[in-house]
Design a protein around this nucleic acid. Sequence first.
DNA 1: CAGTGGTCTAGACCACGAA
DNA 2: TCGTGGTCTAGACCACTGC
Lengths: 236, 236
Amino acid sequence: MLKYQQIAEEMERYIEDHGLKQGSKLPVIEALMKQYGVSKSTIIKTLELLEKKGIIFQVRGSGIFVRRQNRKGYISLLSNQGFKKDLEDYVLTSKIIELEVRKPTEEVSINLNMDLNEDVYYVKRIRYINGQTLCLEESWYNKSIITYLNKEIVSESIFHYITEGLGLKVGFSDVYLQVDKLNEEEAAFLGLEKDAPKLLVESIFHLTNGQPFDFSKVTYNYQQSQFFIQANSHFF
Amino acid sequence: MLKYQQIAEEMERYIEDHGLKQGSKLPVIEALMKQYGVSKSTIIKTLELLEKKGIIFQVRGSGIFVRRQNRKGYISLLSNQGFKKDLEDYVLTSKIIELEVRKPTEEVSINLNMDLNEDVYYVKRIRYINGQTLCLEESWYNKSIITYLNKEIVSESIFHYITEGLGLKVGFSDVYLQVDKLNEEEAAFLGLEKDAPKLLVESIFHLTNGQPFDFSKVTYNYQQSQFFIQANSHFF
DNA sequence: CAGTGGTCTAGACCACGAA
DNA sequence: TCGTGGTCTAGACCACTGC
């Protein structure tokens, strides 16, 4: 593990364990250098990482402060790969509706950058939170990358299998959101009435080398869907 | 302007002007160092910035590549402060419904970290895109920070006024999303039927020193609302 | 194993905020 | 004006990719 990752974890744990609130001041860079016995650049790298993750913010000429969003039960739209971390206190389960090897549709082939005659794994499942329907999920995986899937894997965390089991590294993802009304089939699966609101989230996941391997369409039950995002200044 | 910002802008313009596609390889770091006459660290800083903005991705041992999402007409949920950049080809207008100084409600006081007897500017407006209703927006500004607003300012870009006119610096924001049904009043303002889907986006904007100055609740017309987000690997 | 990106160091100097 | 974070440099060494 890299030094700056190590230090970032320790600092994150420190903030968590001491229950520091938004605005709490952390030690100055000089002190952190001494405390961890590393150079200034390494501390800065650490702080950049913590800032990206939304855990601190830095004010030039003033100091380093804790950043905390205070609402509970929201799903982060950025730390994708399942909701494990956001919804730790909730019970998440899945029901598999379909799992098979297919040829991609035109839409899928475009999003996964594949030929129409290559193979994809198609997975359709319902996810439940505390026994209530959370979402209806359809995913397509490029079979030349995700070479094998079975019911057991799919009923657990697919991302865990991809990173640990297959040893692949996830690089980045594009996420698209739309609001619309449920059609009859979706309503039936989610246990809602037709034309009720839905949030449709389409995601394309890429490996670190830029290759797309997973295209997903997730339809959320509007009653269970609260999301949040932390944005940083580099966008302004 | 800092060197690494300058170089980032030049590289971004180069990618744009040459219409480089996702996966196009850019020059190696060594070459960029020579080309711009700076040290390796500065180039790395440049590339980190471009990566955060979703313009490139880097693959260790391989190279630097262009990242591009291909869908048009989506609003970025991260580069907030109005949609100017995302919807360049569209005509955006506003109608002001209310503009006045008020005392905050409890909800507003919590989100802006204010006392109940301090003053806030309250702004309510409808925004249109190509003549269609895009959203209904309610905003509360801490009056001790945003000291003055009038109809003219509010009918244009409020963020432009805050950064240029008042010389304030926006640091970061927390964004919360929920899907629900329109109530009667919202439906009337947006020209939709009651109980139609809506996306409610609540945002809290902070200055670089961490002080919240703007709490906004924006209700989107579901027919006009397409959003996107680019996520990076540090979340995985 | 050559090429390429990533980490880490030590230190000079700059820019901003608060007193 | 001083304390603090930010930029930039030159260079050593590490780690991953792909031929």
